[in-house]
Design a protein around this nucleic acid. Structure first.
Lengths: 342, 342
DNA sequence: ATGGACAATGACACCGGTTTCCTATAGCCC
DNA sequence: GGGCTATAGGAAACCGGTGTCATTGTCCAT
């Protein structure tokens, strides 16, 4: 037995060096594909690495390099589909690199939100972190990342930071298009279920709604505009309220699918036929959208594209920073919106 | 300037030791709450740690301890709600510990599945890993974890491994109850949309269905049993097929919600009233269930409880292993199932 | 006084990589 | 043949923690 044969655990760089009869530095050179290395030596060491199944220890590497290969995803999940979609998109870029994804849900309601994230970042010393809406709208978190020298990308509904920190969907424009679609179908009186105050997405979508209306010379009637919470129940309540108004609309735009589903329920309760009596358009294209009856016409965030763009910013060199990062959502036309009744 | 003052980066244990005028080992003892330590010293060092905002480097710790504090979640996401629910449950246990969650989606269709997971585990040397269905049913992955000496827990629809590696829902029993509920409502002819061959969950749910029927003395008619893929479209097709049969059932059990939504669409196409003409029961209680019209009666996996149990197994000492880990799902009664038509 | 038990702390090696700096050899030119 | 340069590779320190063992001081029993 050699004195340092380490027969138990996984092989280390020392084992490889000993077996190959070279120094650990040479092994390190092989691993890192250093160019100044004899081809024979490289092959010999590579061979040993292969047969022993040696894999470098990322912790040791992180320590020596004074940086690690962890990307964080910090979110307060309001939308499982989106969170998972972003994870998927991120990972599709991370795959093949040495980066790993580490997930951190937080509670946006908590007063210790910033402190929580600070503790997380300080502890893990991440390479970079992705902030999902709605907490991406929190400027405190952005300054925190700046202070800590942690790369970050904020996902959002509008550009609320410098391009290198922002990947956004142009919600305002997307809603404008969606509402224009309704107007094109002949609707002249359109209701809105907006998102809750304080959410940038809610603001953008409301703005887009308003802009589309005024561009078409239609009135913005507060009677048929109700604020919801982005939850199903609030959509249900809002739908009831709007449809019970003196002069109910022929179409309703709901600021997310969950609320749109609620509006659909409200319509059902009243025995209305969708889309013959009432057209409904949602936002998000979550799983429920296609599975509702009728299938929901909605707006789809380009989650994959945005996630990949964000990943590029987090990993990338300086080039990626410059790229514009405002994505336009896509109107998914299904069956919940149709021509206006006369 | 001191020669090793390290004024730039974050403070290290050496900085603290120097500032406190003690050895790094003593600082280490303070950090790890070693009992054999003078109270005065502890306070002094603690004070310095607090004022400098020192946080130990987890990579260095992992290296020295020859173990790390990472829990992996390996999944092939068929159900965003479930994956995120499990993440949440896991993290609710991990929170407050020094463990972090690292997420790894894989492709169950890939021929390199096992190799992929192997590379992941070997590289990261995780403390433990959670396998979500359907890949949790892959015995190759379990043996892999065993070989690599990585703790693991498989989430599933039945106990298909030793208790210390298994957290399961008793799907068979849950479906039995769901079908009994339909029988109790007077249904005598009940259709089944099963999951795809090769999925343990599909097998268990089919078995529960069959058992409930035979216990009630009802016939299992292959005419109204169709295999689906767990996707919406397959539910739609299956629903059409079953409802077009010579003698259509008065109730259909679909092995997951997505397919139940498909069946609901099929019923709509035929102008059937649910639940008056046809009762439908699903499985999973995903987000869509409550948002369909009518809201779907379904079976809810106890995701939180299962996730926490799994986390306990992954972190825990020897005690937690012994605990039984077969959870029973809950029948969520909504409006999609009602009394049988005569 | 002396030896032993025990409490509090430090010195030093080590975990598994990387970096810095240095050496040895070969090839080349004059 | 001597001096210079380039190339290949090694020795040792280091990253920031932890384990092992030794050291010091105190108190008590003998």
């Amino acid at each position: 037995m050699d004195d340092d044969s380490n027969s138990g655990g996984k092989p280390t760089i020392n084992d490889i060096a000993r077996l190959a009869g070279v120094s650990k530095k040479t092994v390190s050179r092989v691993i890192n594909r250093s160019p100044l290395l004899n081809e024979d030596t490289r092959r010999r060491v590579d061979e040993i690495i292969r047969t022993t199944g040696y894999v470098p220890n990322p912790q040791a590497r992180a320590l020596a390099l004074r940086r690690n290969f962890l990307i964080g995803l910090v979110h307060d999940n309001p939308n499982a589909q989106m969170v998972l979609g972003m994870q998927q998109a991120l990972l599709s870029v991370l795959r093949g690199t040495e980066f790993e994804l580490i997930v951190r849900p937080v509670d946006r309601g908590s007063t210790s939100l910033v402190a929580d994230v600070r503790a997380f970042l300080e502890r893990q010393r991440l390479h970079g972190v992705m902030l999902l809406p709605p907490i991406s709208e929190n400027d405190g978190l952005a300054t925190l990342c700046d202070q800590l020298g942690c790369r970050y990308v904020r996902m959002g509904s509008a550009l609320l930071d410098t391009p290198e920190h922002m990947v956004a969907s142009n919600d305002r424009e997307a809603v404008r298009q969606a509402v224009n679609y309704l107007i094109g179908l002949g609707h002249r009186r359109i209701g809105l279920v907006s998102g809750p105050q304080g959410f940038r997405s809610a603001f953008e979508r409301r703005s887009g709604f308003g802009e589309a209306l005024s561009a078409a010379g239609l009135a913005f009637d507060p009677q048929i505009v109700v604020e919801g919470t982005y939850r199903f129940e609030s959509g249900l309540m809002a739908g009831r309220q709007i449809l019970a108004s003196a002069e109910p609309p022929t179409a309703i735009f709901a600021s997310n699918d969950e609320m749109a589903a609620g509006v659909l329920h409200a319509a059902r309760e009243l025995g209305l036929d969708v889309p013959a009596d009432l057209s409904i358009v949602g936002f998000d294209d979550t799983a429920i959208a296609a599975h509702l009856w009728p299938p929901l016409t909605t707006v789809r965030w380009p989650i994959q594209a945005m996630g990949k763009a964000a990943a590029a910013k987090l990993l990338g060199g300086e080039d990626s920073d410059a790229k514009p990062a405002l994505f336009l959502s896509e109107l998914i036309i299904r069956a919940s919106a149709g021509p206006a009744r006369r």
